[in-house]
Simulated scan of single mutants.
Amino acid sequence: MKTLIVLLGVSVMALIVIKIINGTYDLAFAARIGMSAMLIFAAMGHFMFPDGMAMMIPEFIPLKKEMVYFTAVLEIAAAVGLQIGQIRVLTGWLLIIFFILILPSNIKAAMEHLDFQKATFDGKGPIYLWFRIPLQIFFIVWVYVSSIKFD
């Protein structure tokens, strides 16, 4: 939920600032700024809660904590890449693939009632998926529309 608030809040603020500076609205640019802010916010969570995030990763994947840090770096790189015209479309496609690949970790966390911030098994559980799966689809559509379709 926090990531959605960051995404929408920063996008709206960016849209207003872009309008003030350029005299016109640029929805795609504002949406990319919001997505970049959301990705940096999410990456901070990886650095703040690595133990809980590592618990989300399926058992067959080795070096779980290292993977948490690696995905944080990927999110930061994607945040930057969305703002660079020459690599925006490639970044968008790679980010869509990333969002699809991390969905099993979110499903695992929900099924095991994981609270990644506390690294405990007393989280919201499967009900969380009713929000998380549509949110993941929303992120994918957001990236596609703001970074690929209208590039």
Rank of each mutant, 00 (worst) to 15 (best):
F41K: 04
L95D: 01
A28C: 08
S105Y: 14
L39N: 04
K118H: 07
A109D: 04
I133W: 09
A78D: 03
L27T: 08
G85R: 15
Y69G: 08
A43Y: 13
F41L: 06
T24M: 11
Q136F: 00
G52T: 02
R32G: 09
I100L: 15
G81R: 02
M48D: 05
L114I: 06
V12H: 15
F70K: 01
L101P: 11
I76C: 13
P50M: 05
M38H: 09
Y25F: 15
G52E: 07
L114H: 08
M55E: 10
W130P: 09
F47D: 00
L63F: 03
Q136P: 03
K2H: 14
F47S: 01
V145D: 04
A79E: 10
A14K: 10
D151S: 09
F49Q: 01
M48Y: 13
Q136H: 01
Y128M: 15
L94Q: 04
T3Q: 07
T3Y: 15
V10S: 10
D115G: 03
A119F: 05
Y69Q: 12
L8D: 02
V10T: 08
E75P: 15
D151P: 10
M38P: 07
R132V: 00
Q136T: 12
W142R: 03
F131M: 03
I61E: 04
A77C: 14
I127K: 00
M13D: 01
A28T: 12
V143A: 00
A28K: 14
I97H: 10
M55C: 05
T91M: 14
V10H: 08
A119H: 04
Y128V: 11
T24N: 08
I100Q: 09
D51C: 05
I137H: 11
I133L: 14
G123F: 14
I140D: 03
K149N: 13
Y25I: 07
L135E: 10
M1Y: 04
I76S: 07
S105K: 13
W142K: 02
F29P: 02
A30H: 01
K124L: 15
K64N: 06
L7C: 07
F70Y: 12
L114N: 02
F99E: 04
Y128S: 13
L95F: 06
E75L: 15
M56V: 03
H46L: 12
G45C: 11
T120R: 06
